[in-house]
């Protein structure tokens, strides 16, 4: 089946199988491997992307469901030398260890800040609650999002 979607601002037309997931087409067809597959069942959030402004687990979205929608992956944020404030804050706070959860974490934080540039600690915790990290203990990640919120403010 044919689908059309906007990925990181670029229109893409793809021939896909109905069984394929958004995660599969991002990684295997578009080679955007920043989106990770962790659990594959919506528990860990490693495959988080932003679809029409809302975070979704791309392992639970069929390619067909994404037809006609706009998707932002981690590749659509900053580039080396011009990082997104969330990416910058993650580096500055040391919020990255193995890095596997980081793309999903960054996108959950971005979606929050796009919606609400001044989140409280509670809101940050809720917004990040669907992303698991097995390394950091979360503290630095949450601090990084707070720091990014400060940056976005300025």
């Amino acid at each position: 089946m044919k689908i059309e979607l906007k990925v990181n601002g670029v229109d893409r037309r793809l021939e896909v199988e109905p069984e394929e997931r958004l995660l599969d087409i991002l990684r295997e067809r578009l080679h955007l491997t920043g989106t990770k597959e962790g659990c594959g069942e919506g528990e860990c959030g490693a495959c988080t992307v932003i679809m029409d402004g809302k975070t979704v687990n791309s392992c639970m979205v069929l390619a067909g469901q994404a037809d006609g929608h706009a998707v932002t992956t981690i590749e659509g944020l900053g580039k080396r030398g011009s990082l997104h404030p969330v990416q910058k804050a993650f580096l500055e706070e040391g919020a990255v260890q193995c890095g596997f959860c980081t793309p999903g974490m960054v996108l959950s934080a971005k979606a929050l800040l796009d919606r609400n540039p001044h989140p409280g600690k509670e809101e940050i915790a809720v917004a990040m609650s669907g992303n698991l990290c097995r390394c950091t203990g979360y503290d630095r990640i949450l601090k990084a999002v707070e720091r990014a919120a400060g940056e976005v403010e300025q």
């Binding site: 975070t55 687990n57 669907g130």
Partner: peptide
């Protein structure tokens, strides 16, 4: 229910 990602979907 669930995480933000699940509640969105």
């Amino acid at each position: 229910m669930g995480a933000p990602q699940i509640r969105n979907q």
